[in-house]
Amino acid sequence: MIPTYFLMLREGLEAALIVGIIAAYLARIGRRDMLPMVAGGVAAAVGLSVVVGVVVVATVGRLPVVVQETLEGLAGLAAVAVLTWMLFWMRRQGRALKGELEHGVDAALGAGGAMALVALAFVAVAREGLETVLFLLAVITSAGAGVDTLIGGLLGLATAVGFGLAIFVGGARVNLRQFFTVTGVVLIFVAAGLLAFAVGALGEAGLIVNSGTAYNLNGVLPDSTPLGNILRGLFGYRSQPTPLEVVAYLLYLVPVLTLFVVGRPSLRRRVVATG
């Protein structure tokens, strides 16, 4: 029960975090009318995962590693792309805010922004959805795995959903500028982890060479422990990553975080101040 709980929690946390932030963001800028569309994106991803999962099990039983890892790798790259776009789009909106005058951004959420938020909710859920459905179907059909295994898995997913709801509720209470900054920084770590994950998946698919060990923290914090699982689910933490995964993580994290925290607008302010 416990191992299944943490497995499903790990699979669900990241999607819950992303969808929770999107929903909290929309609520904060006074666009609660968009929430049903985001929910629709999530529902479409869940529905698609269930349909494809059932079809796969009924026909071939399972996906060959090349297909599964290629899909996961490409979905990871797609998620990084949309997430990065959203980060800087949210940041522009954040800069436009004057203190707590949140209504200033009402008009800014055009069709493109709405589309991207719905697409991100869809990709975030669909990315882990198929693997989750295939796993749960295996648990249901396996004689050796008892009901407690299934219950553990469902509780893990429920915890992840609860985490997403907590972000949605909590996001409505913090200062809006803090909300933009904190969620932005958190999402940059998430995206860096996603990129490293995509490298790992494409490596397992045999599409790129991704071997070796950059460092080994299995003796300190294995990613199989409860805390390791949570960090892995949210930020792509691995206790024994390959050099390429570390490079991908840092190549994303350092420049994007730098741009996000000390990017152009503050530069512009400095120019104005000295000029």
Binding site: P3, T4, L7, G61, R62, P64, V65, E69, E131, F135, A138, V139, S142, A143, G144, A145, G146, T149, G152, G153, E204, A205, G206, S211
Partner: peptide, 19 residues
């Protein structure tokens, strides 16, 4: 050391097939 195929998410008690 290239991955030929794999079974992941093997929780206690679970049996998964790999052809």
């Amino acid at each position: 050391d290239g991955v030929v195929d794999e079974v992941e998410g093997l929780v206690p008690g679970l049996t998964r097939d790999l052809t």
